[in-house]
Structure formats: C-alpha cells, structure tokens
Amino acid sequence: MSGKPRKKIALFSVITLITGFILAYSYQYTKQESEKHPSVKEWQQEDQLRNDLLHVQRINHSLTDRLQHVRVQAQAEENKLVHEKKQSHYVVEELNRLRKVVGGVKVKGEGLEVSLKDTTFIPQSSDPNQYIVHEQHIRAVIYELLVSGAEAVAVNGQRITSHSYVTCIGPVVSIDGHQFPAPFIVSAIGNKNTLEKALRLSLLPQLEEDGIKVQLFGRDDITMDAHLHNEG
C-alpha cells in the first residue's frame, strides 16, 4: 500500500504536468495564431482593401505617367508654336517688305514728282508727234527713277510694278490697261534729292530736247495706293 499509491501519484503527476504543459501551450499558441491571422473575413476584407489600394495606386501611376507625357508634349507644342510664331513674324515682315516692293500695299514717304507735259509751242509745219509725250519718255523716266533708287513708282497714281507695261494708244498712254492723257505725273518714293540729281544729270536735257515740258517737284509726303490687277 505504501509503494503503489506513491508510484500512482507520481505517474499521475507526470501526466498532469504534461497535460498542463500542452494545455497552456495550446492556449498560448492559439492566442498568438489568432493575433497573427485574424479571422478569415477580416483577412478577406483586408485583402480586398489592399487590392483596391493597389488598383488605385496603379491607376495613379499610369495617370502620372500620362500627365508627364502630356506635359512634355504640351511643352514641345509650345516650343513649336513659339518657333512658328517667330517664323511667321519674320515671314510677315518679309511679306510686308515684298508687298511694298511689288506694290501690293499703300506706301507713303518723301519722294519726287516729275511732271511731263506736251509742249505748248507747236510749229505749224512740223509733225505733232515730235512735240507730245510718248510712252518711251515715260518709260525712260520710270527706269531712271528706279535705277536711282526709287522704292516705289507711280504714273498718274497708277502704281508701277515689275509686271507693268506702258504703251501708246494714239493720243493717250495706257499703263497696265488704264488710259491716261497728258500731262503725266510720275511720282517716286525715295530720297528726293538723289532722284532729282539723277534726273537732271542725263534725262532732263534729252526730254527737253524732245520738246517736253518737264517739271520736278520734291515732296515730303507722297502717298501711293496699292496696285490692283484689274485691267481696262
């Protein structure tokens, strides 16, 4: 009786020790696991939220990329625009200059007016052709003026361009299809002194020899209308 119960109790104690250990360990383990792994529902929710967040972040990322891309594009466009504007500015300037030269626009400036009149003295015996202003006289004046540096030339207000023609139609002169009788006033925009000196140098004596009354007027402000291509 003395040996057996003691052994029994000792064995019992060993088993209870093990049981206690396992119980406590299991309890602790479960507690930690539940902390580590929250319930499935919670976990799913978390996963869902994480996925949503990821999705939004991905969208944000792609949008940021796009924004950057668009910004770069916009900058390129702006630069191009500035360049084009500069270019077009030069083009317009050039265009305006060329228009002035070809007579496409109204111009204004100091210049010289040359008045060509048929002579009033007509000897009875002579051919009247010798005493009236011919188209070659007008042409000569125009060429002389252009050569002397005139920037724009007009005859009786009709602008002369590189395409203009001056022809004789009986008693009148046709300039680009517009007919003008004498007297003719050839106006030129340019340095009036230079132009006048150039004319007096060679052309004036010749014209006077042909019996034409020539008068030169230096003007400070001559306005010329644009050349229009309506003939006749």
Binding site: A10, G20, F21, L23
Partner: peptide, 15 residues
C-alpha cells in the same frame, strides 16, 4: 496534491 501542483507547474511551463 502533487498531481494538482504538477498541473499548475505544467501550465506555467507552457505559458
């Protein structure tokens, strides 16, 4: 008593 004591000791050890 020893059995109860060992149970408690086991619990403590487990914790």
């Amino acid at each position: 008593w020893l059995a109860a004591l060992s149970l408690i000791v086991g619990l403590v050890l487990g914790f």
